[in-house]
Design a protein around this nucleic acid. Structure first.
Length: 280
DNA sequence: AAACAAACCTGTGCGC
DNA sequence: TGCGCACAGGTTTGTT
């Protein structure tokens, strides 16, 4: 579910509400959410620790602790982080609860119906062993910055369908299905173009589209679809979905050209939305 | 190297 | 109203 803009919105919520607070107690309901290590490892690693900051790399949330360890949360498809007053009724599928010291006492809930997401505490000195994908992650367009020259090198160096390339977290970190389709539409490029066939002008357009879409989506607090699955740490939805031009608009008239209908195809199991007239 | 299918799970929305 | 199927913001693994 959440892509870079949604995870960044959650990160900002953590920075505003959770950073600086001490974790007084940890509850783990469903062990699957902490499967990378164990229930006990999470409890031992977090109890008594203070959260020093809230960072993000791609779709990974990373919070250094005063113990020297680091808290990592990945929301995957259906994960949510919510802050609530201590003792408040918890929603279904609340698998991890961190009790936060302070006035008022609050709780940070990890809620995840599909249980693809995970919570883990790791030692950053052993990141390559404990969270190996972090070491292999590509450039984050917002956190790291991504210049046109860097982007040009990335697309020219490989021969891949451009959609698959944009979704590959080892290459560029943070773009998911929504923002991929929206960026390709904004750049007027079809999903199945070979990355090394893009002209310099197309590379310029696509780079600008990615940076623009992601930046605007972060400013909008991300996208909350009809199922209202994604919400920020206070339970509020984002509103970038009102700017979607292709995602989830199959069969509807293209807003850009006004002359063709949005087409949806399945590529590698992912719904792919585009305008056959605008994108070539 | 690149592309696809399946796997991991639960919930929802749709057609019948 | 109920049933069964398709599908969902992600990532990994195995197979062509």
């Amino acid at each position: 579910m959440p892509e870079l803009p949604e995870v960044e919105t959650v990160r900002r919520g953590l920075a505003a509400q959770v950073v600086g607070r001490r974790i007084t107690k940890v509850e783990v309901g469903r062990e699957r959410s902490v499967r990378r290590t164990s229930r006990q490892a999470l409890i031992d690693g977090l109890t008594g620790a203070t959260i020093l900051s809230a960072g993000r790399r791609g779709k990974y949330l990373l919070c250094p602790l005063d113990t020297g360890d680091e808290l990592m949360v990945h929301l995957r498809m259906s994960g949510r982080l919510l802050v609530a007053d201590a003792g408040a009724a918890r929603p279904p599928h609340t698998h991890v609860v961190l009790h936060l010291a302070g006035e008022p006492a609050q709780e940070l809930w990890f809620v995840d119906p599909r249980t693809f997401g995970e919570v883990v505490v790791f030692d950053p000195d052993h990141v390559a062993v404990e969270v190996p994908e972090l070491a292999k992650m590509g450039v984050d367009p917002i956190a790291d910055g991504l210049t046109r020259a860097q982007f040009a090198a990335i697309v020219r160096r490989r021969h891949r369908q451009v959609k698959a390339l944009l979704l590959d977290q080892h290459v560029i970190a943070g773009i998911g299905n929504i923002y991929c389709d929206e960026s390709l539409h904004r750049a007027h490029i079809r999903w199945d173009r070979a990355s090394d066939s893009l002209t310099p002008r197309e590379i310029t357009r696509l780079h600008a589209a990615i940076m623009g879409v992601l930046t605007e989506a972060v400013e909008a607090g991300g996208s909350t679809l009809a199922d209202t699955q994604y919400v920020d740490i206070e339970g509020q939805g984002g509103w970038f979905q009102v700017h979607h031009r292709v995602y989830d608009r199959a069969g509807q008239r293209c807003i850009t050209c006004g002359k063709a209908d949005i087409v949806r195809v399945t590529v590698a199991g992912r719904g792919t939305h585009f305008c056959p007239r605008c994108q070539r």
